[in-house]
């Protein structure tokens, strides 16, 4: 069984993907790409769940992944709708130009 890929390999891959996602959120200015980076982070977390499910011999991790996917789908739908509404008002998808949160 030495050929089996250990859990740590999956976890490191997951961490790397997650950090790439964080970096994307931090350095990009295009709202859509930021959104994609967030999806990347979600996928990284999903990978951890599935890996743990495999190595702990439990199905719970996979179930959680299903729920994450459902929530992610909902999030994408609402998020893209917000972006469209925003673009319609601001004529821009650059986060630097959006400061509606300032009181």
């Amino acid at each position: 069984m030495t050929a089996t890929v250990p859990l740590s390999a999956y976890l490191i891959l997951s961490a790397a993907l997650f950090v790439i996602g964080v970096a994307g959120v931090l350095i990009r200015r295009n709202v859509l790409v930021i959104f994609m980076a967030i999806e990347l982070m979600l996928n990284a977390v999903n990978l951890t769940f599935v890996a743990f499910a495999r190595f702990l011999r439990s199905m719970d991790g996979q179930i959680i992944v299903l729920f994450v996917m459902a929530v992610a789908a909902a999030e994408v739908a609402v998020g893209l709708a917000i972006i469209i509404a925003l673009y319609r008002n601001k004529e821009s998808a650059n986060v630097d130009e959006i400061n509606l949160l300032k009181g």
């Binding site: 740590s8 961490a15 950090v19 190595f55 011999r57 439990s58």
Partner: peptide, 20 residues
């Protein structure tokens, strides 16, 4: 990245508990 990866190395694998 460091914080996420370094603990993985020292992570002691738990005994598989599930039945799957």
């Amino acid at each position: 990245l460091l914080e996420l990866v370094i603990p993985v190395g020292s992570w002691t694998a738990r005994v598989p508990q599930g039945s799957s």
